[in-house]
């Protein structure tokens, strides 16, 4: 049921992508996300698809698993597509029916927006699937380290992020448990109108919040009991160091970015075949 949500979770496997330095994965993911928005041609999307496909293939994370991660954004996706389809004007009119007008531009924008959104989520899930929350925190902390000079509490921010990530599966599990317990008492979450359904959430939300606070409290105590006192003077057992494969990954991503930038620049927009 609700445990099917896989966003932000780690997927253990032995793969070249898993072994990469977390910093590489964070930076390359960011570059990939940017690449989705600096171009808008069919060729560009083909290249992005190839890149993402390669990474997914090497990461050994099953495609089914990544597809599951897309489930929570389905509604957002539909909304974006419909909005773009109906509201974008320009180009030839394809369908005209009452107040509904679908234009060529509208169709193009909505298809591209959908692809962008899907790749956005798939790209960032590949990062979280292949990096442990600890790795992610370490990487982020190291990357943002220069901001320390500007009095940004980098360590704390990274810690908060990793705890939040770690809590996603825990809270999902908890929700699943509570849901089942209330279903065993005859609760019904599937039928009724919106108001009835919202009301049916109360028996889940109240225990969930209580348990979240209890867990947060326990965690704070456990951290203090182990003398956690923030980032100052804290050393790492396994400091991050770039290796050969990390440099390779950077180069590979850079080539990809350059290619896609060139495509966006010099291949005319009209290369759109339909």
């Amino acid at each position: 049921m609700i445990r099917d949500i896989t966003i932000g979770q780690y997927y253990p496997a032995e793969s070249p992508i898993h072994r990469l330095d977390p910093r590489v994965k964070i930076v390359c993911t960011l570059l990939f996300l940017i690449s989705l928005f600096i171009q808008n041609s069919l060729l560009g999307y083909v290249i992005a698809t190839l890149f993402l496909g390669c990474v997914i293939h090497f990461s050994k994370v099953p495609v089914k698993y990544i597809a599951k991660g897309l489930k929570p954004i389905v509604i957002l996706l539909l909304f974006t597509v419909v909005m773009n389809l109906l509201l974008t004007r320009g180009g030839e009119t394809l369908v005209h029916f009452g107040i509904i007008t679908i234009t060529e531009n509208g169709l193009r924008t909505s298809v591209f927006m959908a692809i962008r959104l899907i790749y956005l989520v798939a790209g960032s899930s590949i990062m979280t699937f292949t990096t442990t929350p600890n790795g992610l925190t370490d990487g982020l902390e190291k990357l943002l380290h220069p901001l320390n000079r500007l009095n940004v509490p980098v360590h704390e921010v990274a810690m908060i992020m990793s705890i939040a990530l770690r809590f996603i599966p825990i809270l999902l599990e908890e929700t699943d448990k509570i849901m089942k317990a209330q279903m065993a008492r005859g609760a019904d979450f599937e039928s009724g109108n919106i108001i009835q359904r919202a009301k049916a959430m109360i028996p889940i939300l109240v225990p969930l919040f209580i348990s979240a606070f209890r867990r947060a409290n326990d965690l704070a105590m456990a951290m203090e009991a182990r003398c956690y006192h923030g980032g100052e003077g804290r050393t790492k057992m396994k400091p991050l160091r770039y290796k050969g494969r990390d440099k390779m990954a950077y180069i590979f991503t850079l080539i990809y970015i350059v290619v896609i930038f060139m495509v966006g620049r010099f291949v005319p927009f009209k290369l759109w075949v339909f």
């Binding site: 908890e174 448990k177 509570i178 089942k180 317990a181 209330q182 279903m183 065993a184 008492r185 005859g186 109360i202 028996p203 109240v206 225990p207 209580i210 348990s211």
Partner: peptide, 17 residues
């Protein structure tokens, strides 16, 4: 079925609301 087969979960106190 769920009302006829009553199931009390492990640590059921977390379901009170």
């Amino acid at each position: 079925l769920r009302t006829q087969v009553g199931l009390v979960f492990q640590y059921p106190e977390y379901q009170l609301f």
